[in-house]
Design a binder for these strands. Sequence first.
DNA 1: TCGTACCAACGCTTTACATCA
DNA 2: GTTGATGTAAAGCGTTGGTAC
Length: 364
Amino acid sequence: MELGLSLGEAMADAGRELVLGLGMGRREEAAVEAGRRDHEVRRELEFGSMSSRCGGSSPEPTVRLTLLPMVPGLGLPWPPPPPPSSESSECGDGHLEASTRGFDVNRPPSSGGGAEEEQDDAAGAALSSSPNNSAGSFPMDDFSGHGLGGNDAAPGGGGGDRSCSRASDEDDGGSARKKLRLSKEQSAFLEESFKEHSTLNPKQKLALAKQLNLRPRQVEVWFQNRRARTKLKQTEVDCEYLKRCCETLTEENRRLQKELAELRALKTVHPFYMHLPATTLSMCPSCERVASNSAPATASSAATSSTAAPPAAPSSGGIAATSSSSAAAAAAPDHRPSSFAALFSSPRGFPLSVAPQAQPPTSS
DNA sequence: TCGTACCAACGCTTTACATCA
DNA sequence: GTTGATGTAAAGCGTTGGTAC
């Protein structure tokens, strides 16, 4: 007979505690705090108890669904982790060594000082002025064993890496935008960096660009795209979670409604039960007990009905719960008539967005 | 203290290109 | 060799937060 009350409690919790965080840290200061905050990121869905009640009449009110963290470094199951970075660092050395030979057209300006944009522009200027910037002068299928900057193939021929093609959009007015494919090592290194922090401050960007022999703008764009991919994946995961939760709750709601109908039918057959569940089928949202546990609420409701409502007052018709609860509400001004029963009987499932009414200060 | 302009970084969307079946 | 689908680097645009005045 506590079924309705438990359901209402769960729904109230669902409306109050549904938390779905999809935001990501942004801006530089957010990047500073990313390490601390990302560990706090939790996407939690707290619905009314469904799985716990499916197994029986457990009073456990809620079930917590903790979604996957957004940042891959926090355990995101996609995509598969890249190869260890130790190899990448070695490749990076080789890459830098190769870059000193002047093969890589993505080579940033030699000096790391100055503002980021200045360096970016300087890099673009350097690239545009480089005679090695011919976009079509490299074989696109020759990148399989390259170092970080893909320059391991440099001895085989200048500009043998896929990452060299970016230069073409900055020379001759940038009319032709040549597609760049980062080497596997570069991508792996960037992935490792992304695991540590999904956003970059200018210093990190410059260091990464220098290490990978890319332009800072390339690193920035890569991180932007990577964040977008992460968000897209997370959105898909969240959508799947929500879909499953919705299906489960819908099924649970259907089952509970069926059970409620059976109980009501039972009541009409056996009027003796009319007194017992009088207050359990209607929940007062202004009662704090309701939100915490069903048992005290039931007890208090029973007490209220026993004191306010005449014990020997059989209703002439309708559901005893409604009449009795109305009588109790009339006797106790603090208790407003509940609208949850109507919500529960709604065929539209559960009111996820229903926020519980604020409890007015009691006069007593 | 408030309003405004400027700048940098970001997210979102689109485009263009490379790759693969 | 051609073609469509897919992945992704890069550009464009608007938004936002910080800073200087």
